[in-house]
Design a protein around this nucleic acid. Sequence first.
DNA 1: CCTACCGATCGGTAGG
DNA 2: CCTACCGATCGGTAGG
Lengths: 196, 196
Amino acid sequence: MAKIKTPDQTSKREIIHAIAAELFREKGFRATSMRELAAKVGIEAASLYNHIEGKNELLISICFKVANNFTQKMNEVESMDSDIISKIEALIRYHVYENVYNYKDVYVSDREWRNMEDPELSKYREMRRSYRKRFTSIVEKGISRGEIKKIDANTAVMIFLNAIAAVDQWQRIVNKVSSEELENNMVTILIDGLRK
Amino acid sequence: MAKIKTPDQTSKREIIHAIAAELFREKGFRATSMRELAAKVGIEAASLYNHIEGKNELLISICFKVANNFTQKMNEVESMDSDIISKIEALIRYHVYENVYNYKDVYVSDREWRNMEDPELSKYREMRRSYRKRFTSIVEKGISRGEIKKIDANTAVMIFLNAIAAVDQWQRIVNKVSSEELENNMVTILIDGLRK
DNA sequence: CCTACCGATCGGTAGG
DNA sequence: CCTACCGATCGGTAGG
């Protein structure tokens, strides 16, 4: 039997998770206290535990939400019937999109996941490893098909994943150029390079 | 770090700083306790304070050592008498070099600097901002000279700085390809792109 | 470089 | 959702 929640409980839990993501991003998981989180929610620290299991659960929830999103996108891209460059472009655009519209969760999952403990830590590590491996396979296929230069596929994927990782800087740039413009710049620079 | 110490040469203070960088990188600044650091040094926690001022001093020292290195390199590159692409290439190669041979300090300065407090925090932020600005100016000059495509210079610099930022992944790659090979891959991908 | 110990703060619980 | 409070752990100090 599924847990029955009143609309109020569900909503408060979501509020707590959202504010937690904000604080974890700003100060880091370890540096954020449950008392601080409670204050920002507008209740006492003890009251948080009527809505959530604990501090660790908050981090776990954020990290796996993001990991599942990217895994699902990779499934889609792998089954795309298109050339390799288009697949890589689709992945780049998705990373940009997630970093713009879901940047708190993405940032926390990328920088704070080390604070999880087993078994979640191992599972998360495995998901990251798998995503990177599947991305690398796509690049390698592009090389063997002659669509892509003969570069080291691991290095290329590392550059891509890092280049698009969440940073504070992002929001400033998005305020100047649109998300679409940002995606286009990314694709141009990463796929066609800087040189004119 | 060797367990048997060669007489002096490396001061206790330097040993503590090196082990601190290692721990801050592995577990994060907040998650590293002075007791843990002391244990790895081989003394009691209280004894650390005969050699260092406190936990904050360790982080400050690491962050500014790295920041000063990059600032000095930027001074050199700006005064280079060469085309813009060569300047950007020199910066990329330096980032790769620092990330390979000084990766603990670079990683900590890049991911843990938020744990500093004013006035150091503000000073460090300003150094980062300045470095990024000078890098952007170089790219903009390249665009106006026609050496570089008309892309958004801020986005390009963000990609470059992130692409080359320290990650665990790095060491694995360096074990497979040489540092020079890694530099060459980086330069190729970032300057000339992926497409054949 | 140690033993002994401090005040502060942490995540979380009991009980209403 | 609150007050009251727990044991654990933190960075750091006193004094030898």
